[in-house]
Every structure is written in C-alpha cells, then in structure tokens.
Computed example of a mutant assay.
Amino acid sequence: MTQHPRVGVLALVCRDNRLLLVERGRPPNQGLWGFPGGKLEFAESLTAAAARELHEETGITAEFFELLPPLEAVSDGFHYILIPVLGRNPEGQLAAGDDARDARWLSRVDLADLPIIAAVPPLFDQALKRLSSL
C-alpha cells in the first residue's frame, strides 16, 4: 500500500464504435473490466504513458492526442489520480498481456454483461462523443 496518491493514465481507444477494455488481472480492481492503463513513469509524458500501457496490456498501438478531465480513484489501499487519454488509429494484434487477464473491443451495450469499474460507462460515453465529433 502506498502512502500518497500516484498519477496514472487510462488509454481510451476506439474502433468501429467499440472501445478497448481489459479485465484486470491484479489489484486494484482485479476481475473487473476497465480501460488499459497504469502508473506514469518518471519523466514520461501522459501520451507516452498511455501508449506504453496500451501496448503492454493489449499488444495494440495507437496515436494519443487528447486528455480528458482527471479522475480520482481510491480502492483496495490504492489512491490514484487518473488521466484519461484519447487514442485513435489502433493497429496490431489484440492479445492480453502484462496485468490484463483478457482484452476485448466492446460496445456500450456489451458493458451490461460484464463486471466493470464504475467509471467506465461515463468515460465510454465521453470518449465516443468526443471521437465522433472529429
């Protein structure tokens, strides 16, 4: 358990009105579905962190171009300030890796059938709205 908040990123990447989500394989939120993401490393930009985490957890690469408003998450002894980063033009072969148990392209309707992190539906809607306006 950490004694101070950590900064992390969430990679929000869309393909055909579906966003890429992963099933968390470790705490926090183990067993729940959420966006690929993780801690920001020293001297790493937010977009570079999103690209790194996306690739580590899914095998996918994308162009990250815009930050959404930050979120605060306190769970399982962890305290994160999370910055959602929008990505586009995904490429690569999807395969769960690093601390992701599974990875899938999901529609908004698909979320109803999965155990998800509470912040996922509003972020999903925000990302789709923003990406469709481009």
Score class of each variant (00 low, 15 high):
31 G>E: 08
51 A>L: 04
75 S>Q: 15
4 H>V: 13
114 L>D: 07
59 G>C: 01
21 L>I: 07
74 V>C: 09
61 T>W: 00
18 R>S: 10
32 L>C: 08
83 I>D: 00
132 S>K: 11
3 Q>I: 08
86 L>W: 06
64 F>N: 08
86 L>F: 06
130 R>L: 10
1 M>K: 09
55 H>D: 07
19 L>K: 04
134 L>D: 09
134 L>Y: 09
47 T>L: 05
99 D>S: 08
74 V>H: 11
80 Y>P: 01
2 T>A: 14
134 L>C: 09
127 A>P: 04
94 L>A: 06
43 A>W: 05
88 R>W: 03
85 V>G: 00
88 R>S: 12
97 G>A: 13
52 R>L: 02
18 R>N: 06
84 P>N: 07
38 G>L: 01
87 G>S: 09
45 S>T: 15
104 R>Q: 12
32 L>G: 01
77 G>S: 10
64 F>W: 08
63 E>K: 11
99 D>V: 14
48 A>D: 15
128 L>M: 13
7 V>F: 10
105 W>T: 02
80 Y>M: 08
84 P>F: 07
109 V>C: 02
31 G>F: 01
98 D>I: 00
82 L>V: 03
65 F>L: 07
65 F>A: 01
54 L>F: 05
123 L>H: 03
128 L>Q: 11
132 S>M: 02
94 L>I: 08
33 W>S: 03
91 E>A: 15
67 L>T: 14
118 A>H: 12
126 Q>T: 15
65 F>P: 01
36 P>E: 00
72 E>Y: 10
86 L>V: 09
115 P>H: 04
22 V>S: 04
107 S>I: 05
95 A>H: 14
107 S>E: 08
90 P>D: 06
16 D>P: 02
134 L>G: 13
134 L>T: 08
105 W>S: 07
117 I>K: 09
41 E>T: 08
2 T>Y: 06
74 V>P: 00
85 V>Q: 01
26 R>W: 01
84 P>D: 06
2 T>W: 11
60 I>R: 03
78 F>V: 03
